[in-house]
């Protein structure tokens, strides 16, 4: 009984935090997506009061959302950008993480520190810095600029989980593989790579999901032509004052991420038997 109480006490604060700051807002958003936008922003009242305007519940936001291909198109485009960012991050991070993991113990800490050092300065300042860098190359306000910015900001989130995974690998496994006839290439693809799959999945999730919702980078580096779903959602709340549509878009994004996470988890389970 004591153990159960302890468990409950330990899990209570984080559970409470998640319920308050994640579950409750999400439910509020679900509610908001079924309402009318208010005349001056916000939401129209549920019950008609005084001068009767639009009120009550409606499927308008969803009808609007699925009535126009442009929204689904922007959604799809966001997924492509997120996938591409994740792929480029993976390709850049993997050799680097391998290098750090293979360094002497003392130097590893320094290298990890260098990886997270950019976080010491403000995110927006760093994005503005990229505007200055990209400007002279005629790259600013292009899709390439968005991709560069996305990769730059999220690279550490790929390096760290990969490094943490690779650092744990037992070097004797590579000795054993070599002893049994595997050359350098075979040792990587048959031992190191499959064993690093949990790190790859973790890093990919940490990059893919934030990129999907990111609006500052496409806005600053992509200009007005190239908006992603993050910008679209932000616009509904701040510029168009259509909270229901913004909520519906958010929920669409959440649903797509959850669906993807479910597929990824199933894939991960089947490919990582015995690893984790």
């Amino acid at each position: 009984m004591g153990a159960r109480l302890t468990r409950w006490l330990i899990s209570a604060p984080p559970s409470l935090f998640l319920v308050t700051f994640f579950l409750a807002p999400s439910l509020i958003m679900v509610g908001a997506s079924f309402r009318h936008p208010g005349a001056f922003g916000g939401l129209a009242p549920l019950v008609a009061a005084g001068r009767s305007g639009e009120h009550g519940l409606t499927l308008d936001a969803y009808a609007f959302l699925f009535g126009d291909w442009i929204y689904l198109w922007i959604c799809l485009k966001s997924f492509v950008v997120a996938a591409l960012t994740t792929l480029v991050c993976l390709l850049l991070a993997y050799p680097l993480a391998l290098l750090i993991a293979a360094s002497p113990r003392k130097r590893r800490d320094l290298l990890v520190l260098l990886v997270i050092l950019p976080f010491a300065s403000n995110f927006l300042v760093r994005v503005y810095a990229w505007m200055i860098v990209l400007g002279p190359f005629d790259l600013l306000y292009t899709q390439a600029a968005v991709l560069i910015g996305m990769v730059y900001v999220h690279l550490p989130f790929m390096i760290l989980p990969l490094y943490i995974n690779l650092e744990k690998h037992d070097p004797v496994l590579l000795d054993a593989a070599q002893d049994l006839g595997a050359n350098r290439w075979q040792r990587f693809w048959r031992i190191t790579f499959p064993l690093s799959l949990p790190g790859i999945f973790a890093g990919s999730a940490l990059v893919f999901i934030p990129v999907l919702g990111m609006f500052a980078i496409p806005e600053l580096l992509g200009g007005t032509r190239d908006i992603l779903i993050g910008n679209l959602i932000k616009e509904q709340f701040l510029d168009n004052r259509d909270w229901p549509l913004g909520s519906a878009l958010s929920l669409l994004l959440t649903a797509m991420v959850l669906a993807l996470a479910w597929v990824a988890l199933r894939l991960a389970r089947s490919s990582m038997r015995g690893v984790s």
Binding site: L173, A176, A177, Q178, D179, A182, N183
Partner: peptide, 22 residues
């Protein structure tokens, strides 16, 4: 001659079985 080309195999103290393989 590198280890992978020697007709010599080793049984390691920690067994070194590949955890991700049956």
């Amino acid at each position: 001659t590198p280890p992978e080309h020697r007709p010599i195999h080793t049984v390691f103290q920690s067994y070194a079985l590949f955890p991700h393989m049956s």
